[in-house]
């Protein structure tokens, strides 16, 4: 993975004058969904690319080493080999971008991936995921432990209380601490946009998270009632562009939660392409957090290659 975003000093002037017009962003989001249809070979290639952006995720109370192991195997072989051969991409080393698990399952994942002989990074959620309502001390400790266990990417949740009460400085310092606790691991900051109240807050929180040194900003935990939506994404992508223009640092973007269909994933790709350009379409700067998306993509690729719709048993489960 690329170099870290070093972050900048806290500069509140970046967020003090910002205006986000919700109805206009909603209109743009609606347009974007019908803006670029991608068909045939293009669709197949785009879907394969989408696979390489996936943070294959399991975040359930009943996770055990058994299903984590299966997940890791699927991450390594996301699409059936014969389908990849038919598309002449079997030598491209297509795997998902990472696997994402709870801190307590990091060891299982690291072990499974090692056994499978691959270098897919393990991402761990942390800092009192999903609510973030625990003491700062334990939240930081959680990060350190996950890193010790071998996680190289940490998905932290921000403290929504600080956003809703306008304590931007405190938020900046908290994320700074997270950054330090991560050490060499990458920091992905979950904004939990469904709980921030308005799009202006989404922009401000994005900016603060980037200034504090996040390598990625991520829409949601997947546990809120409102997850990754296009309007929210547009605001975050615009913030990423503004930060890039201001500092020259490229920060990544990760939508997560509720992305289930192959068609959705295409829209997400074109959304990033439209708002930020092709440079962002790499696993270093774009991830999709998802669990069931992969199987739908595989089905679509099956259909593209064979011309038939797959039965449930045609594709291996994850």
């Amino acid at each position: 993975m690329s170099a870290h975003n070093r972050g900048t000093e806290l500069d509140l002037s970046c967020i003090s004058k910002i205006q986000v017009n919700q109805p206009a962003v909603l209109r743009r989001a609606q347009q974007l969904q019908a803006l670029r249809s991608v068909k045939k070979e293009w669709q197949a290639a785009w879907l394969l690319k989408a696979v390489t952006f996936i943070d294959l995720t399991t975040l359930s109370g009943d996770d055990t080493s058994c299903n984590v192991q299966r997940l890791c195997y699927k991450a390594k072989y996301p699409i059936r080999e014969d389908l990849l051969k038919a598309l002449d991409v079997h030598d491209k080393g297509i795997t998902t971008a990472a696997v994402c698990v709870y801190p307590a399952r990091v060891c299982d994942a690291v072990k499974a991936l090692k056994a499978a002989g691959c270098t897919i990074p393990v991402a761990s959620v942390a800092t009192g995921f999903p609510a973030g309502q625990t003491h700062l001390k334990t939240r930081l400790e959680e990060i350190r432990l996950a890193v010790e266990d071998g996680a190289t990417e940490i998905d932290v949740v921000i403290n929504r209380t600080l956003v809703l009460t306008g304590q931007w400085e405190a938020l900046y310092h908290e994320i700074r601490e997270f950054r330090k606790a991560c050490g060499e691991a990458h920091l992905k900051t979950i904004l939990a946009t469904g709980e921030l109240g308005c799009l202006t807050n989404v922009y401000k929180a994005s900016m603060i998270a980037m200034m504090a040194g996040s390598d990625f900003i991520k829409t949601s935990t997947g546990k809120e009632t409102v997850n990754a939506t296009f309007p929210v994404a547009i605001v975050m992508l615009r913030a990423i562009r503004d930060f890039f223009w201001k500092t020259g640092n490229k920060v990544g973007f990760k939508p997560a939660g509720g992305i289930r269909s192959a068609k959705d994933s295409l829209t997400w790709l074109s959304l990033v392409k439209e708002e930020l350009g092709d440079e962002w379409l790499t696993p270093e700067l774009f991830r999709i957090g998802a669990s069931t998306l992969l199987s739908d993509i595989e089905r679509q690729i099956y259909h593209h290659v064979t011309g038939r719709y797959a039965a449930y048993h045609d594709l291996p489960m994850s």
């Binding site: 670029r36 991608v38 068909k39 070979e41 197949a44 785009w46 394969l48 690319k49 598309l87 790709l269």
Partner: peptide
């Protein structure tokens, strides 16, 4: 062609 598009991620005709 899919292989090429996979690298460039360009838009195709629709």
């Amino acid at each position: 062609r899919a292989r090429d598009i996979f690298a460039t991620l360009e838009y195709g005709p629709a």
